[in-house]
Design a protein around this nucleic acid. Sequence first.
DNA 1: CCGAGATATATCGTTCGGCGATATGTTGAT
DNA 2: ATCAACATATCGCCGAACGATATATCTCGG
Lengths: 108, 108
Amino acid sequence: MAMSEQAFFILTALVGEPRHGYGIVGEVAELSEGRVKLKVGTLYGALDRLTAEGLVEHDREEVLQGRLRRYYRLTRSGADAVAAEAARQHANAEAATARLRGWQARHA
Amino acid sequence: MAMSEQAFFILTALVGEPRHGYGIVGEVAELSEGRVKLKVGTLYGALDRLTAEGLVEHDREEVLQGRLRRYYRLTRSGADAVAAEAARQHANAEAATARLRGWQARHA
DNA sequence: CCGAGATATATCGTTCGGCGATATGTTGAT
DNA sequence: ATCAACATATCGCCGAACGATATATCTCGG
């Protein structure tokens, strides 16, 4: 598997409620505390890819104040993927910090 | 920044003591509990790249039982990068799990 | 003694994905 | 009237991981 950080945040942004493309950009920036600023070129490409993989699906379309909003929603499989990826990253971070801790302790 | 999982594990494997290329492969497999099986094509390319970025440097060369071993070591900057990336991944995993928890709670 | 598999390094072409640029149109503020 | 924010979409470039391939030595089993 091994998902990109961008894809991971797109999926995470969709946890709980469907969102439209541009809305995802803002949500990802907030979720990541500004670390990830999604580019539109990345977003729509990723959305298509994730849809093809069955992690995301089209929800509905709305016209709000003349602007089209195309909503996407997380599938069951997508929610599983977020959970799995979060666990993976948690484990990765753990492994690295444990190593760094041990090394610093031996060099105190 | 946003480092790849492979690069992250290569750097993590070098925390504490220098290792040679092939040794890194095994160490990464162990560190990641089998999740990441580094391919040699990835390894040497990544090692060159990380060296160019100053995160890793050449240590020494050994000839052990007729086989050449080229050792690499983590630089100060490389150690900082591992720590930063670990923190980033920890934060990412946290953000996602918090969201998943909240969502599950509301749908109990 | 021979062959297979592990150890060890190196290179090359393909492919996938993120990024920057660009395009198009609307709304709201100045 | 113009400019920023909102909103979607596409395209080409490039960096990076991967699979394949090559070379060479050592060890172990048959």
